[in-house]
Design a protein around this nucleic acid. Sequence first.
DNA 1: TTCTTACCCATAAAATCCCATTGTATCCCG
DNA 2: CGGGATACAATGGGATTTTATGGGTAAGAA
Lengths: 162, 162
Amino acid sequence: MALEHLFQGSALNAVDAKGRVSIPAFLRSVVERRGDARTIVLAKHEAFPCLSAYDPAYAALKHAKLERLLEKEETSPDAELEYQQRNLMAFAATEEVPYDSSGRILMPPMMRRKGEIEDLALFLGTGETFQIWNPQRLLKDPRIPDDLKDIANFRLEERRTS
Amino acid sequence: MALEHLFQGSALNAVDAKGRVSIPAFLRSVVERRGDARTIVLAKHEAFPCLSAYDPAYAALKHAKLERLLEKEETSPDAELEYQQRNLMAFAATEEVPYDSSGRILMPPMMRRKGEIEDLALFLGTGETFQIWNPQRLLKDPRIPDDLKDIANFRLEERRTS
DNA sequence: TTCTTACCCATAAAATCCCATTGTATCCCG
DNA sequence: CGGGATACAATGGGATTTTATGGGTAAGAA
């Protein structure tokens, strides 16, 4: 896989009354270096109560990888079914949203619900993709390392004091 | 891993009112020989109350290593969660900052707090990475060898007398 | 119409660039 | 080898640009 540009860092941005959120500039720059789209793909995260996000170029890459995997394995009914399921999740359960000239997306209502996002969105780079959390939801999750919760708390404080 | 260019040496630089710090030229030259980025990655050190720093090429290498590890292990739920946690720490808990034409970075407020950095930053090369300390914090740490504290003291005196 | 979405403008704060200064190390040439 | 010229490093300050965010409004779908 080895993508040279990786998503990294954290930021806490507001979701405004219209449902708009700024994608942090340092994440946008990775999206644009990986491909030339000004668009991100949103999906429910498989393990955490948050959203997973990436660029269209990465989505295409992931799809190609699935295809190759299918061709290698003999077409047992099991492998075939699993492929169909993964394909559904990868495409039907995702939404591609463009960001405007000021770097904002309109958070789709369904994704907002799936990710339990309210009026604050915590962005966390995770290398090949990034995550979008409701910061309060992250603080409550026992699977999240304390050091990361410190970061969430720092971002919350930073916002309060300014 | 075996990177041929290693970070070594020490320097004490000022953090100015805007939060800017010069990365010592001898460390920058290693960054630029390892890859062509004029950027460093900052993270809280796992063991010491200071920051750990390296170049993006090293970060990518570390990431690739993690990926390979995942592919080897069977995908038990435990291994999966541990992978997610490590990925979060490696990317969300770090910040990539570019340095300008004069070799300065803007120390991100979160890292400044995590590394307990005030108005002086002590740079210490440690081979594959380097560390950034609050010199006073280093002098107080019982785990630091006296010889290293001598170096910190020397750098502090050097600054006072000039 | 009414609600939603895309586009445009405005603003404050923060990040970045540019230029100037100073001290130190390096080079060159007689 | 001395001494001056030169280059580079670290740092300060001001000017400029980018970012995040709010609000208005027109186009369009329900």
